[in-house]
Design a protein around this nucleic acid. Structure first.
Lengths: 178, 178
DNA sequence: TGGGAAGACTTCGAAGCTAAACTTCGATGC
DNA sequence: GCATCGAAGTTTAGCTTCGAAGTCTTCCCA
């Protein structure tokens, strides 16, 4: 009973014994993806913690910056993009308000709505995280040439296009686009 | 204030305006990775739910199958691989015991230890998930030729090697291997 | 043989989420 | 005009999952 985690190739070899019809090529891509994301999440989580941020807070910060100047979004919009219920969004904003990362005010054009805005503190926090993360990211990709980085980005983008543009049907299938 | 999520390229363009020193190539790879994993997690989560499984349970199931026959591991080992405390592991095992997915017994060679084993029910569950997931995975990769799938797998494996073999130092840097 | 030390469990509490009911506001129909 | 419906957000209650601290059992070694 070894304490060492099986390598990706070992994992797939075992999986194939357990499930004959498995496509090893597909499985390798998918499992490499999730393994990578797990490691990245751990690394980011550690860095965020040193800056006093949690992952949920970081997600909201990203969405607001991504919205571009003047860094404003409706709570419902953020909730939809992050896959949360409106209630969960309310709670997150509550927490971030006490830290001065965001502001919350009524939308005067439609007073049912609320506008979440990024404070200067929040924007500064985003920058700090990005600066810290870029060091890790460069380390992560250090073995790939510029040409390979481009290839990888292009291949991943094609997968992303498939999964972001084609919402699954009732059976969970990803149908053709356009 | 549009409701549509920015595309990956839009996101990176905005990030570059906010943070001049950003490497767009690196950022594209990293963000595509995390976007992809998020989508995959949602898809898997939905499928798991239809089979009455939660993600934490699925993680444990995978580790046990990955261990190979006779599908036995110590709780501490699973905890380490999943990045959990022993206490959290105890809770997970408790839940899975009531569903008949795993067994828990004392290790007679060292009676401080405990052995977690996979039941036939648990193994059958694993198979059901794999069968269901492979449909989604094939859909996800349908736009890539076999050659491209191989390239992608190889590039991801090289990233993985960097992050799995080189535990970060105190400053979080990924140093050279070997 | 008498401490450690290690491994797992128990208890308690916190974080973060969802579901459902509620409030407030705008739109629509008669 | 007035009433009703729907949309957006909040509140409340409860659930899931995890971690921290303490406990118990067992092994190991001086």
């Amino acid at each position: 009973m070894p304490d060492r985690q099986p390598t990706l190739d070992e994992q797939i070899a075992i999986y194939q014994r357990e499930y004959r019809d498995l496509d090893p090529q597909v499985e390798k891509v998918v499992n490499a993806l999730s393994r990578l994301d797990r490691r990245m999440s751990v690394a980011y989580g550690r860095q965020l913690a040193t800056l006093g941020l949690s992952s949920p807070e970081w997600e909201v910060l990203k969405e607001l910056v991504m919205a571009g100047s003047p860094y404003q979004l409706w709570p419902g919009t953020i909730a939809k993009r992050l896959g949360l219920t409106p209630a969960a969004m309310t709670h997150r904003i509550d927490r971030m308000l006490t830290q001065g990362l965001v502001t919350r005010e009524r939308d005067m054009d439609n007073r049912v709505r609320v506008i979440i805005g990024l404070t200067d503190t929040g924007r500064e926090k985003w920058l700090e995280v990005m600066r810290m993360a870029s060091v890790f990211e460069e380390d992560l990709l250090q073995d790939l040439s510029s040409r390979e980085r481009g290839q990888l980005g292009e291949l991943l983008t094609r997968l992303l296009r498939r999964v972001e543009h084609a919402q699954p049907d009732a059976g969970g299938r990803l149908t053709d686009l356009d």
